[in-house]
Write a protein that binds this DNA or RNA. Sequence first.
DNA 1: AACAAATATGGAAACGTTTCCATTCAGGTG
DNA 2: CACCTGAATGGAAACGTTTCCATATTTGTT
Lengths: 362, 362
Amino acid sequence: MPPKAKVTIKDVALKAGCGIATASRVLNNSGPTSAEVRERVNRAALDLGFSFSAIGRALQSSKSMTVGCLVPSLANPVFAEAVQGVQNELVGTNYQLLISSSNYDDKADDDAISTLVSKEVDGLIVTMVAPERSPALKLAHQRGIPASLMFHDPIEGFATSYVDNFEAAREVAQRFSEYGHRRTGFLALRLATSDRSRNRYAGFHAECRARGMPDPVLIELSETDANRPEKLTAILAAHPDLTAIFASNDFLAIAVQKAARLLGWIVPRDLSVVGFDGIEIGKLLDVPLTTIETMPEKMGRQAAKSLLTAMQGGVLEQLPPLPFRFRAGATLAAPRAKSRDDGRVAAQPPSVPLIKTILKQG
Amino acid sequence: MPPKAKVTIKDVALKAGCGIATASRVLNNSGPTSAEVRERVNRAALDLGFSFSAIGRALQSSKSMTVGCLVPSLANPVFAEAVQGVQNELVGTNYQLLISSSNYDDKADDDAISTLVSKEVDGLIVTMVAPERSPALKLAHQRGIPASLMFHDPIEGFATSYVDNFEAAREVAQRFSEYGHRRTGFLALRLATSDRSRNRYAGFHAECRARGMPDPVLIELSETDANRPEKLTAILAAHPDLTAIFASNDFLAIAVQKAARLLGWIVPRDLSVVGFDGIEIGKLLDVPLTTIETMPEKMGRQAAKSLLTAMQGGVLEQLPPLPFRFRAGATLAAPRAKSRDDGRVAAQPPSVPLIKTILKQG
DNA sequence: AACAAATATGGAAACGTTTCCATTCAGGTG
DNA sequence: CACCTGAATGGAAACGTTTCCATATTTGTT
């Protein structure tokens, strides 16, 4: 084990007393070799601790054996799971995963793609703010780098692995309607940078209309407000007529319940809440979360799978969306029959001190 | 915009009517050039849509400008956040992030490191099952590839960014003791593959002893059982004398509360629970989770930061552990004075039908 | 025994960079 | 006017592979 910094195939050939070409053939099993030289080369490689330089290989074959993956942020468990799905699918192939994240920034998205392209990735798997108007992504496409989208609805020229947000949201509106809800709200974060949220809102809105319900109230929260319930509490208080909230993700669905409790409202008696994503924790809550279950891991897997076939010369074809599933939970129920102000506030007189207590600890 | 597959610096030089060396100097600002040729080269590069081949560069400079990162799984939000932290620190440098995951498998860990090394990463950031006995990691070290650990306690030869699990766990024992708890349990997943959990257990155990409490009951859950509360319910029922549980992560802390509820126990009246990690959702729960807050994002950042200085020729030095913080929450309280069987079961007669209901929906 | 066919081998080019070195040319100094 | 300095430039080597091609050796067939 001489800890030589770099041992190349040249060193192996030298030690084995043969030419580089022969050593290469032995090490790759890529051509005729005599048993004798095979023995010598393998022994030399082992002794020297040789391993191929992926860079040398990449240069000569113009294949980096690397796929680039861009998501807004790994701090969002949904994206993290999807990336893990990609990874799971890539294990066993010889492809490695180069990742980047944009923190939901349009410009950063584009830069990230450029960087990945200049690293000569063999394929791309992306979730970005606006894939349809990313110059870098278009350029990658022109250069013949196959790209597979995740979470996005289909757009011209790319295959995508996604869940039908519009349809899923329609189902939520339908459930609300069946329980007799009429005045609803849609709660989301960063609507401007999330086509997913926009699609959910669109579907929810469309189905509410179709059922003759009033248009849902659109509640958009800033990043920072999401962790501090006060703002949400104020918003709820300002809309006492809402009986049901559709939250664009499960975290928000849990946050809005916290806000409701601060007002002394009880879920689902005084307010129904439905989330989106289907995180596991939702099942374990005291009042299990009603939500739409999706499969981020599968999404990543599917994106990786199609990309792999595309990289092997196959054609990138659009598969149908991944299924979603309505998880009943217990945060959705019929709205109270009685008028709001009588019912809710009266039922929980000590709401004000409660707020104080919790504000203090936050 | 001729969508030529590959435009190299040779093409640029040709079009600009100069030598390759000159073109390189212009494009890199790395030597004397006349204003005139500079103009021509830049224009040619722009016209042709030239961008450097990172592979060509890597080969010649023997720097891949890539750091490899290995974590057990991105499906665990703690690791995902840490990786995002690494990423955040790397943005702005010219380093890209190559990731891999082992799914908590010892062998896979080693293979992953080998692969990353053969990709010639310039540095490594790793969390693995057992870094101290990974041949591949040792080899990387011998080859002079700097490596920075995450989540691990310090080991010979590597810098690590971590939280003092032992100390944090001692604090939990101390809090339990102060509230008057004596019989406690430690709940964990995959103890064999997580030195973090083992260290927490060790610290918890040590402090319980130091305070004259009985040794904590060690409860280890299989992966699959963690999502299905029945098993946990059975375990709790088998240990009716426990008054407090320290869970090795917040997810388990929430799961054990679910199990307790299935038995009709009320948290924290009948059972105190303390978690670990400090996930945001914990704050939003009806009964806010008592837990140890840690900073995974910072951990990733710190690991990346030290690695960066090491890669720039600096020395990899061990920093003190990152701080943790006890978050009070509301799932920790004094144990009930009365005997168990009187208190708990009698207080919640309808516990059996409740179990049935919930089992059905799971 | 002679020759074709198959097998084994190594030299060299190519992949896209950067950088060392040598060359050319202009301008300044004695 | 000869000389030196410094700037500008391009050729070529090197980084580690794979692969084409040509050569050398063995095997098999008449």
